[in-house]
Amino acid sequence: MSSAAIMMITCPSIAVAKKLARSAVKSRLAACGNIIPGMTSIYEWKGEICEEEEAYLLLKTQKSMSEAVIKFVKENHPYDVPCIVSVPLDSGNPEFLKWVKDQTGEK
C-alpha cells in the first residue's frame, strides 16, 4: 500500500494556484503541483447561488503530511473556507511514489 496522497484544492485563479504550488514544493510539503485551469464552480455561499471560474490545484505528497498541507493552504489561501481534500493513493508506479516520498518532508 502506498503512503502517498493527492491534495485537491480549488483556487480563484491560476496565479493563486501557481503561488501555492511553488511554495508547497519549495517547502517540501509537496513533490509537485498540477494546475487544471478553466473549472466552473457553482455553489451556495451566504444564502446566494454563486458561479465562479476557478483553477484546480493537485498537490502530490505523503499521507502523513496531509495535515501540514491543510494548515499551509489555509494560511496562504484567499478564501475564508478553501476546499482542501486529500485522496489517498492505494497504488501506483512504484518509482513515482518513491520520488514523491523522496521530494517531501525532511531532506
Rank of each mutant, 00 (worst) to 15 (best):
F96W: 11
Q62S: 03
E67Q: 10
L57S: 04
I84C: 15
K63S: 10
M65C: 00
V87E: 06
P88T: 07
M1V: 14
E44W: 15
I70D: 13
I49M: 14
T40K: 12
C32T: 13
P12F: 11
Y56K: 06
G38D: 14
K107E: 08
V16C: 07
F72L: 01
I70C: 10
F96I: 06
I36D: 13
Q62T: 03
A5D: 09
L97I: 01
W45A: 15
E53T: 10
S64N: 02
E54Y: 06
S66L: 00
M65H: 05
C32R: 02
N34G: 10
W99M: 01
G33Q: 09
K107T: 09
K26A: 13
T40V: 12
L58I: 02
F96Y: 15
K98S: 09
A17M: 03
I42K: 13
L20Q: 10
G92R: 03
S3M: 09
C11I: 09
Q62P: 00
V81K: 05
K18P: 07
I36H: 09
C83A: 14
A68P: 06
T10W: 06
E44V: 13
M7G: 12
S41M: 12
C50Y: 11
S64L: 00
M8S: 15
K101L: 00
K63Q: 13
E106P: 00
S27G: 04
K74F: 05
D80I: 05
Q62W: 00
A21M: 04
A5M: 08
S64A: 07
Q103V: 01
S86F: 03
T10S: 15
A31E: 07
I70R: 02
L29C: 09
E44N: 15
A24L: 01
S91P: 06
V25H: 08
S27P: 02
E48T: 15
V87F: 08
W99A: 04
I35Y: 10
S66F: 01
I14H: 09
R22K: 14
L57A: 04
I9W: 11
P82G: 12
S91R: 12
S3F: 09
P82W: 06
K101A: 04
C83N: 11
C32G: 13
I36R: 06
